[in-house]
Design a protein around this nucleic acid. Structure first.
Lengths: 189, 189
DNA sequence: TTATTGACCGAAATACATTTTCGGTCACTC
DNA sequence: GAGTGACCGAAAATGTATTTCGGTCAATAA
C-alpha cells in the first residue's frame, strides 16, 4: 500500500486527536506502521507534514462549501450558505476544532500560522465571489477586499463570539435576518 | 492631602506602567507614600483597587466619547465618531493599551475579566443609543442588542484586526465610507 | 542499488527542589 | 484610632537534574 498515504492518514488521526504539539513523529510512525525515517523521505519535517494534512482539510472544507451553494441562487443566499457551512466546519471537524483549541490554550506558533493562513484564504475566496457577482451585475461595485473582510468578520462574530457573552447561541434565522437587513441589502445593485 | 486620592493616583501610575500582575502593593504604597496597611483601609484587596482604577478609566472614556458627539447630528455621524473615539482610546490610553497587551501576553484572569466587562458596557451603551434613535424615528425598529453587537464588532475588526493581515491600516474615511454604504444605510428609517 | 529502519544525538521541554516574591494581616506606634 | 511595616503562608520564580522529541544516518533488508 502507498506509504505516503498511510503516513498522511496516521498523521491526520494523531493531529486530530492530540493536536500539533502533542503529536510526536514516533507516534505517527507507529500508527502508520513505518520506521520514523520513512516519514522523512516524504516530508522534510514535522511542520511540512502538518501543512500537508491541513491543506487536505482546507480542500475538504472548500468542497463542502461548494456543495451547499446552489447554481443560480442569489449572491446573498449562496454567500450565507457558504459562510455558515465553513463556520460549522470550524466547530465540527475534529482537526479544525482541535487546532482552534490549541491556538487558544498552547499558542503553538505553527498552529497560529496555519489558522491565520486559512482565514486569509477564506477572505480571499469570498472576495473572488464578490467580484464575480459584481461582474455579473448582481452587486454594485465596491471594495471587494474590504467587503469580504467585513462579511467574514461579521459572521465570525455572530456565530463564534456571540455565545461568549450571551447565554444562548444565535439561530441561523437570526443571523441571516440581521445580515440580510443590514449588509447584504446594501450591496445589491 | 486625601490618602485615598494619593493611593488611586499611585495605583493608576503603576498599573499603566507595569500592568496588573507586575504591580505590587508594596510598590503602590511606596509611590503613594503610605504604609501598605493603609491601602487596605480603603480597598479590600488588590483586585478592588484595580477595579476602582479601571472604573475611573471607563468614565474618562465615556466622557471623551460624549465629547465627540454633536447635538443634533445624525445617528450615523455620532455613532461613528463615538466608536472611533473609543477605539482610539483603546490604543492611546496608556493603561488600556497596557491591559490589552497583558491580556494577550500573560492571560491574567483579572485583566481578561475587566476587559470583557468594558466591552460589554460599550455594547450596552451603543444599544441604548440605538434605542433612542429608534424612539426618535431616526432608525427603523431592529434588534438593538444584535445591531449594537454587530456594529461594535465591525468597528473592532476594521480598526484593530485589519492591520494584522494587511500592510497599512485603514483610514477613517475608508471605514466610514464602507460602513455608511453597508450597515448604517440599511438602518435608516 | 535503493528503500527502510531504529539507535543515536543534542536541543528543548519537563519535573523536581529550593528560594524568593507578594498579597494580605495585625500587633504595635505615634 | 489612624497608620505602619515586620511577618506569614501560598504561590511564583529560579536553578538543576532528567526526560522527551525532532531529526540524522550507518546499518540492514529487499
Amino acid at each position: 500500500m502507498d506509504r505516503r498515504q498511510e503516513i498522511m492518514e496516521a498523521a491526520a488521526k494523531s493531529f486530530s486527536l492530540f493536536g500539533y504539539k502533542a503529536t510526536t513523529m514516533d507516534q505517527v510512525a507507529k500508527i502508520a506502521n513505518v520506521g520514523k525515517g520513512t516519514i522523512y523521505t516524504f516530508f522534510a519535517n514535522k511542520e511540512e507534514l502538518f501543512n500537508a494534512i491541513v491543506l487536505k482539510m482546507t480542500e475538504e472544507m472548500r468542497a463542502e462549501s461548494d456543495a451547499v451553494a446552489v447554481e443560480g441562487a442569489s449572491f446573498e443566499q449562496n454567500a450565507h450558505a457558504r459562510l455558515m457551512q465553513m463556520l460549522k466546519f470550524r466547530g465540527t471537524h475534529q482537526l479544525y476544532a482541535k487546532l482552534i483549541d490549541e491556538e487558544k490554550e498552547l499558542r503553538t506558533p505553527a498552529v497560529i500560522e496555519v489558522l491565520g493562513q486559512i482565514e486569509r484564504e477564506i477572505v480571499s475566496y469570498i472576495k473572488a465571489k464578490i467580484e464575480r457577482a459584481i461582474a455579473k451585475g448582481e452587486l454594485k461595485p465596491c471594495d471587494s477586499e474590504l467587503v469580504a473582510f467585513l462579511l467574514f468578520k461579521s459572521y465570525l462574530a455572530l456565530v463564534v463570539d456571540w455565545g461568549k457573552t450571551h447565554d444562548e447561541e444565535l439561530s441561523e434565522e437570526q443571523i441571516s435576518g440581521l445580515l440580510s437587513n443590514t449588509i447584504f441589502n446594501c450591496l445589491l445593485a
